[in-house]
Amino acid sequence: MCQYQAEFKRLNAEVLVIAFGALPLAQAWLEETCSPFRLLLDPERTVYQTYELERSLLRSWNLKTVRRYVQLMRDGRQWRGIQGDSTQLGGDFIVDADGILRLVYRSRDATDRPPVEQLLAGLRQLTGKDET
């Protein structure tokens, strides 16, 4: 998401990345993905539960997940093992300035994440700003 930093800023969006794993793993993720955003730690996953993000062994670990890990390592990511609850699925939410949920996306499996363009489109709709 690094290359989109300027666009998030233009759209008046603050990005908060929430992680449940150990700090070194989360920091490594930020560095490897070149993510310039604030990282918040939720090791007990209380906020994950508040936002009703699911846990699933079958949807976290399957052939699709293994293929994705292989691809990530081919792309230069290092294997650092799994810490925390590896069955925890993630999600993405857009909250407008009034505190209202404007996008709710819960991962169907561990590889599932909305395209950045979908997130930007949601923010553009809120701000009324066109694509640059």
């Binding site: 008046n12 990345v17 929430i18 590896s86 999600g91 300035a97 561990a110």
Partner: peptide, 23 residues
């Protein structure tokens, strides 16, 4: 500490990204 409400108070829209083990 960082809270959602304080972040919103600054007038921002907020994108929450909850990581899974794949990142």
């Amino acid at each position: 500490p960082v809270s959602l409400s304080e972040t919103l108070r600054d007038g921002h829209n907020v994108l929450l990204v909850f990581l899974r083990h794949l990142g």
